[in-house]
């Protein structure tokens, strides 16, 4: 059984252990949203009302990245002792989306650069539940 997810319905872990972000695709115009948006399409030029769940690409390229030098305030639960959390915004070419996520522990900003390939995984927050995370694709190979 999967560990508890920190948010419902935003990602799944398949039988092989791979994490997938769950988006929604408009049946009418093909626009993709993440987090999943239900009902009316957000493309103002589309009258679509039906969205189908899609798994987003597991790989993308770094749009930008940063870290949190100080423990973020609640409702974030910071680990003690605190080590800076790294964040990456990753561009998924197929979906035309940039998705923000934590980078797996142990990877600092010095190991990232804009344009490098990343891969989706997941990992636990300090208080246990899982979130999606990015890791350098090379490290996953």
């Amino acid at each position: 059984m999967d560990a508890e997810h920190a948010v419902d319905g935003w990602f799944v872990v398949d039988a092989g252990g791979d994490a997938h972000l769950l988006g929604a695709r408009c049946a009418a115009c093909g626009n993709v949203s993440f987090p999943r948006f239900e009902g009316f399409c957000r493309n103002p030029g589309c009258e679509g009302t039906e969205q189908e769940e899609v798994r987003l690409s597991r790989r993308g390229r770094v749009w930008s990245y940063t870290n949190a030098g100080y423990p973020p305030p609640p409702p974030y639960v910071a680990a003690e002792p605190y080590t800076p959390v790294t964040l990456a915004a990753v561009e998924l070419a197929g979906e035309g989306l940039v998705v923000l996520g934590q980078v797996v522990p142990g990877i600092g900003v010095d190991e990232l650069r804009v344009g490098m390939e990343m891969e989706l995984t997941c990992g636990p927050l300090a208080d246990g539940p899982l979130v999606w995370m990015w890791r350098p694709a090379a490290a996953a190979a």
């Binding site: 626009n31 949203s33 993440f34 749009w63 035309g96 989306l97 940039v98």
Partner: peptide
């Protein structure tokens, strides 16, 4: 990518 969003709009369609 804008505060407080997790992702941009999609430019696919």
């Amino acid at each position: 990518l804008e505060m407080p969003n997790f992702a941009t709009d999609s430019s696919a369609a």
